[in-house]
């Protein structure tokens, strides 16, 4: 069974935010809720690099472990989803998530956050696939349509890869080898030129 994963190739990501708005548009995510965001380290300095992050769909997911109402579940493809009808908006998943993936439509006092929203790997939620209710609450279920996440499909430089973990790891490996600057060939690759692809 395919295990869905994201990889963001920092050598390629140009911080164009295409992935971010692709997600917004495909899933009609409201202002203030950001299922995906792009973070740049070393901004404005040589060595600057960006990566795009969303939910990592962790195998031992902290969010799932702390949820007081146990509304998370995992699909056979390893996608971590949750049920908004059950979610109580307590925010615990966001405290636990190492990556800041869970989002809330509001940040009000009295702990009023609304229901948690996060990246679904474009796999919708517990409602019937492609139903109005599913789209309304979770956005599109692209996996059920045989497509991959909108953010990865539209990434401007193909930095963001999303899909079967094995396949995307292969793509990245090929790239690293092509760059001739994989861990195996540090230094030498640049000195001698690249292996012919």
């Amino acid at each position: 069974m395919a295990r869905m994963k994201f990889i963001c190739d920092a050598e390629r990501c140009i911080e164009c935010n295409g992935c971010v708005t692709a997600c917004k548009a495909e899933n009609d995510v409201p202002w203030g809720v950001n299922r995906r965001r792009v973070v740049t380290l070393g901004d404005g300095q040589p060595g600057e690099k960006s990566i795009s992050v969303a939910c990592m769909h962790c195998s031992d997911a902290p969010c799932m472990a702390v949820c007081p109402v146990d509304c998370f579940y995992r699909t056979e493809e390893g996608v971590v989803l949750h049920d908004k009808d059950v979610c109580i908006g307590c925010g615990y998943c966001s405290y636990a998530c190492p990556f800041g993936a869970p989002q809330f439509p509001s940040n009000g006092t009295f702990g009023m956050r609304g229901k948690m929203d996060k990246c679904t790997f474009c796999a919708g939620g517990p409602e019937e696939n492609g139903s109005a209710a599913e789209i309304e609450k979770y956005g599109r279920n692209r996996l059920a349509e045989g497509k991959l996440p909108a953010c990865a499909e539209m990434c401007s430089t193909k930095a963001l890869l999303g899909g079967d973990g094995d396949v995307i790891a292969d793509i990245l490996r090929t790239r690293v080898v092509q760059r001739g600057k994989g861990s195996e060939v540090w230094g030498w690759g640049t000195a001698y030129g690249k292996p012919k692809s």
């Binding site: 295409g18 992935c19 708005t21 692709a22 548009a25 495909e26 401007s156 193909k158």
Partner: peptide
């Protein structure tokens, strides 16, 4: 209602920056 990438395009291979990905607005 939706916007799909055109992987066949030799120019962009389905890719978009923020503006293109938000075109549906």
């Amino acid at each position: 209602v939706r916007q799909e990438p055109v992987f066949d395009s030799p120019i962009n291979l389905g890719a978009h920056c923020a503006k293109g990905a938000a075109l549906r607005e």
